[in-house]
Simulated assay, not measured.
Amino acid sequence: MTERLDGTVALVTGASSGIGAAAARELASLGASVALVARRKDRLDELAAEITAAGGTALAIEADVTEQAEAVAAVERTVAELGRLDTAVNNAGVMLLGPVLGAPTEEWDRMVRLNVQGLLYIAHAALPHLVSAADSEPRRVSDLVNISSVAGRRPTAFSGVYNLTKHGINAFSEALRQEITERHVRVSLVEPGAVDTELTDHLRPAVREVARQRFASVETLLATDIADAIAYVVTRPRRVAVNEILVRPTEQPG
């Protein structure tokens, strides 16, 4: 049975599109007030207006989570304006594929900054508030959901540094889970396979074409499919922790 999230507050990074936007809509539909965090303020404002029009509560926060001060400010503004923090969804990320030999290392830097450091900054800032929420009504449990990837389980050629960042997220999440699970702060991984989002838009043209051809015959997941998985994780009863969910298209072999 799905529990409602009334009286709780969720923060979602990368909320201007794709999985982040879909997750924000889903959490709001379940009763959570939602802080929308991303760099594209115009899109956040549109999503906030949509959620508000549907009867929900949303706060648009323009922030670059790769800057620690901005990540901290986003969390603190969420708590100051919405009153608490029960759920943090670390969704912001970028996938820049290609061979290691001759790679533009600025792409590696970009992935490490966003996929790893940005996630760490939000987690660090959110944890004290998640601990506090887990000690209080209405649910007496809180959630940190880190969006990883099938790439965090299965290294593949031409994905080396992306694999590195996602394997790192998986390791960090499990270590943190062991540290704080007895405080009723649940740490969970959601690992999507191929999803129809803007993720491949950031690839160099030649690499983008190869990546898209790889899944040309596969019916890929929708962002709403991953939002549904996130919602499942955070709506379990206090006694239930879903530590990891791998979601792939039915037709995706690896």
Score class of each variant (00 low, 15 high):
245 I>C: 01
50 E>W: 14
107 E>W: 14
9 V>I: 06
235 T>P: 03
61 I>N: 03
170 N>G: 11
28 A>Q: 11
34 V>I: 06
167 H>G: 00
144 L>I: 13
253 P>V: 07
66 T>A: 13
142 S>G: 04
226 I>G: 01
154 R>F: 04
73 A>S: 12
249 P>E: 04
211 A>Y: 06
3 E>A: 05
21 A>H: 05
219 E>Q: 15
155 P>K: 10
56 G>F: 13
82 L>E: 04
99 P>K: 11
14 G>V: 09
209 E>R: 15
125 A>C: 04
72 V>R: 15
167 H>N: 00
109 D>G: 11
212 R>T: 08
17 S>A: 15
186 R>E: 01
195 V>S: 00
211 A>T: 09
203 L>H: 05
236 R>A: 03
168 G>Q: 13
32 A>K: 07
185 V>Q: 08
104 P>L: 03
31 G>W: 12
249 P>S: 01
24 A>P: 03
158 F>V: 14
74 A>H: 12
158 F>H: 15
128 P>K: 10
65 V>Y: 08
95 M>R: 01
214 R>F: 08
15 A>M: 11
240 V>D: 01
193 G>A: 07
74 A>F: 13
33 S>P: 02
88 A>C: 09
150 V>M: 04
113 R>V: 00
234 V>S: 00
15 A>L: 13
176 L>R: 10
125 A>M: 07
30 L>C: 04
37 V>R: 10
65 V>I: 15
107 E>M: 09
109 D>W: 15
254 G>C: 01
5 L>P: 02
190 V>Q: 02
210 V>N: 05
241 A>L: 15
183 R>T: 02
214 R>S: 07
29 S>V: 14
103 A>L: 09
153 R>N: 02
202 H>L: 06
245 I>V: 15
140 R>E: 05
103 A>N: 05
69 A>V: 06
222 L>E: 14
58 A>Y: 07
206 A>I: 11
185 V>M: 08
105 T>Q: 10
48 A>C: 07
14 G>N: 05
176 L>P: 04
102 G>V: 13
55 G>K: 13
243 N>D: 08
19 I>Q: 03
13 T>H: 03
200 T>G: 00
24 A>R: 14
231 A>Y: 05
83 G>V: 10
54 A>W: 09
100 V>R: 04
